[in-house]
Design a protein around this nucleic acid. Structure first.
Lengths: 137, 137
DNA sequence: TTAATTATATATTATTTCTGTAGAGTTTAA
DNA sequence: TTAAACTCTACAGAAATAATATATAATTAA
């Protein structure tokens, strides 16, 4: 059970934008240099963040990316839900597609609860809360 | 973020033993047949469950395995902690070994809390609770 | 217009992790 | 003597993840 680097990078991108909030759009090239992530990879990640309405992009020369929301409204939980697929989470121990217990399955229920509380915690913290309290640049 | 099949199998093994509790030791061959897991793989998993004091084994002919505890005292959380390595969980977003924020890092703290509540939930449910409420045999 | 920059989609490679099997010998107890 | 667990190790295949690469289109500032 581990977190993908995509979630980690996703967070880093948003924190980077939060830190440069108000200075005009930030270009992928800048983020790439600062965070040591390839431009092409960044584009893929940013695309997902855009689809989730966390980033707005300005096209053309002098374009770039900015946060689409107040950093206080972007939570860690939200970002993780974008990048984590949660495969095999919330399921049963039996590997059957057609579970004959369906809703009555205790395992499914416990799982569901555990994951919900997990994300609730992560949703209690925003980009704004942490942007100055992490060790990376 | 997904659960390894080892955790799943670990649960299945314990549930199998719980269901045959009181009928003498259960042999790996039986579990293998019932659950369709190879004997060799079972041995590896059982070894880990033994080290965690969840299973006791009886050597020699007519030997086998039994639960080391009351099924009510074996929780899902406990089993998962055995098999999930939690790599990258609880860490920071920065990939640095020598985090210069250390304890002050907000991310680490939030993480820690989220994982704790997650396991707390899973620890509220025992093998005894679920052994009759899952769809697999 | 031109250069800069994002948008989009797809393909490919590399790396890592996970699964599961297998072997070979040891120990224990009926 | 035999059945079964114990232990340790190696390996192979599969799957997932990570990252790079390619190509083309669209947009906009200067």
């Amino acid at each position: 059970m581990k977190v993908s680097t995509k979630s980690r990078y996703g967070m880093i991108i948003l924190i980077d934008l939060a830190r440069h909030d108000g200075n005009g759009p930030v270009q992928v090239g800048e983020i790439s240099k600062r965070q040591d992530i390839s431009v092409k990879y960044l584009e893929q990640l940013i695309l997902q963040l855009k689809k989730a309405n966390l980033i707005t992009s300005i096209r053309g020369a002098k374009g770039g990316h900015v946060l689409a929301k107040d950093p206080r409204q972007i939570t860690i939980g939200h970002v993780f839900k974008i990048f984590e697929t949660n495969k095999n989470m919330g399921g049963c121990f039996c590997n059957q597609e057609d579970c004959r217990m369906a809703d009555a399955c205790r395992v499914r229920n416990v799982w569901q609860e555990a994951i919900e509380t997990f994300y609730e915690k992560l949703e209690s913290t925003s980009i704004a809360d942490i942007k100055e309290n992490i060790c990376c640049e």
